[in-house]
């Protein structure tokens, strides 16, 4: 009986995780520009992946699995922000984003604009 309840929780976690993964993919397709797409991909994706990993930890008995899952989730939480930051700055610097509909852009005019800084560093213009 207890086993069945545990397995039901595992199943629900797996479905919820996959659902968030699907939402991330849907967001990458539906949202308007690269920077907003990144919101969906980096966060909903991480949450979905974390939930599926949690389901694995609950399903298999033994602490070694739990330890590995915790390591994997911590690793995801550490790497996702770094990757998102790198892509975000690169996307902005490449001049392709943000798209129309952006209500406010503090970086556009200021001296901190990553595109301008990159070009100045390269000694062009």
């Amino acid at each position: 009986m207890l086993d069945q309840i545990a397995q039901a929780i595992v199943g629900i976690l797996a479905v919820a995780g996959s659902f968030f993964c699907l939402v991330a993919a849907l967001g990458v397709v539906r949202l308007p520009d690269a920077l907003t797409r990144m919101h969906a991909s980096s966060k909903a994706g991480t949450l979905g992946c974390g939930l599926v990993l949690l389901a694995v930890a609950l399903f298999f008995p033994g602490l070694d699995v739990v330890a590995r899952v915790v390591a994997a989730i911590l690793f995801l939480l550490l790497t996702t922000p770094v990757a998102a930051h790198m892509i975000g700055r690169a996307a902005y610097a490449s001049g392709e984003s943000p798209a129309a509909g952006t209500v406010r852009d503090d970086l556009a005019k200021g001296p901190d604009n990553p595109r301008r800084r990159l070009l100045e560093k390269a000694g062009r213009r």
Binding site: A24, A25, A34, S42, G45, L76, A90, A91, S94, E96
Partner: peptide
Amino acid sequence: TTADRIIAIDLFGVLAVAFIA
């Protein structure tokens, strides 16, 4: 744009991790 493709490929990696799990 290239940035869009990079984002999608990054998500692809995360999805692959979820799939293996």
